[in-house]
Nucleic acid binder design. Structure first.
Lengths: 194, 194
DNA sequence: ACCTGAACACCGTTCAAGT
DNA sequence: ACCTGAACACCGTTCAAGT
């Protein structure tokens, strides 16, 4: 096999390289996950260094900071969406919706660093952010549908409306006494939906 | 009069210096206001340069970026709070509340750059941010009180709850079609308050 | 193919030196 | 008292050179 620069490379060697690259990539993700949860503003240079990898390697795998954060985000979000279906299977729709919101708040508070790292500079309206949120939006839609079915939630509001109304969670201090404030927020929003 | 370094300076000269400093300060604020509205991430070096002033001078007047933004913010916020009282004087409480929210949305969208510049790194929970918001919080409280008086709003929710529920405004794209989304958000929140 | 790290243009912040 | 701007340690990003 001929590499891009015309050097002869054995197929075995190519596989080794691929495997190594995959390991580098997942190692970078792991290190970045820890670093970004602690400090969402951590520098890419610091992440590369802490992963024991050249800065160029980080850029090779993740061309932009958003690419890196998005990759971390995706797994978390999928899990969160899955929780909605689990709750719907176990509980009455009204209870499931409320419990899911509580879980959502826990998630936001736990991952505050990661989430805020997704902000492009300042605001969070980017293609990637919306893409990352799509499974969550769909999950909420299922929760709302179940509640509409039993007349617990009126029609006319969408999952995105609910998400917008709970965006304030990101501005609560994870180190502070956020639980009562989150509870009141949910009380307010759920009352609006009924 | 003796200056800090023991040099003799006439009182007249001191006044001149004070006046000059005040002019420098307000000129910096003016330039920074324009620059930050356009790009909330604009560098302090760029602001100083664009004001035709040494970077040290900017730091002398505003020791931190937050100090600079806060100063700009304060005037805007006061105006917004004043609008609540004006609306309460003209309109029925329900109408006043709704109209104020519309004005608030316009404000957030117009000043998105400035507002997001207030985020300390990533989140917005800082002493200064809360201080800056206090007049807005108080204004909403007056709107809510008027509405409670005519039975239009239930007790149990505070102005801060309403603010938290409308934080999502900051994540709408000022360049996009945000009006219908803001309107639905207000519909949802106001329904919850009733 | 994949990785490295020096190099570049920037940033925030400080502080000795000027008036 | 007030202002300047060089200097410092950093940042994101690129890209020639190594394996």
């Amino acid at each position: 096999m001929v590499s891009a620069k015309g050097l002869w490379v054995s197929n075995e060697r190519v596989e080794q390289l691929h495997a190594q690259a995959a390991r580098t990539r997942s190692h970078l993700l792991e290190v970045a996950g820890v670093a970004l949860s602690t400090d969402s503003a951590v520098s890419l240079n610091a992440i590369a260094k802490s992963a024991g990898v050249g800065i160029g390697t980080l850029y090779r795998h993740f061309p932009t900071r958003e690419d890196l954060v998005f990759e971390l985000y995706r797994g978390e979000v999928r899990e969160l969406a899955g929780a909605a279906d689990a709750l719907l299977g176990e509980l009455a729709p009204g209870e499931a919706l409320r419990r899911w919101l509580d879980r959502y708040a826990d998630y936001v508070m736990a991952k505050a660093g990661l989430v805020s790292a997704l902000r492009t500079g300042t605001t969070v309206h980017g293609r990637l952010a919306q893409q990352a949120y799509a499974p969550v939006s769909a999950a909420i839609e299922r929760l709302l549908a179940a509640n509409r079915g039993i007349g617990g939630v009126r029609t006319g509001f969408t999952a995105d409306d609910l998400l917008l109304a709970t965006d304030g969670l990101y501005n609560l201090d994870p180190a502070g006494d956020w639980r009562p404030r989150a509870a009141r927020l949910f009380d307010l929003v759920l009352a609006g939906l009924r």
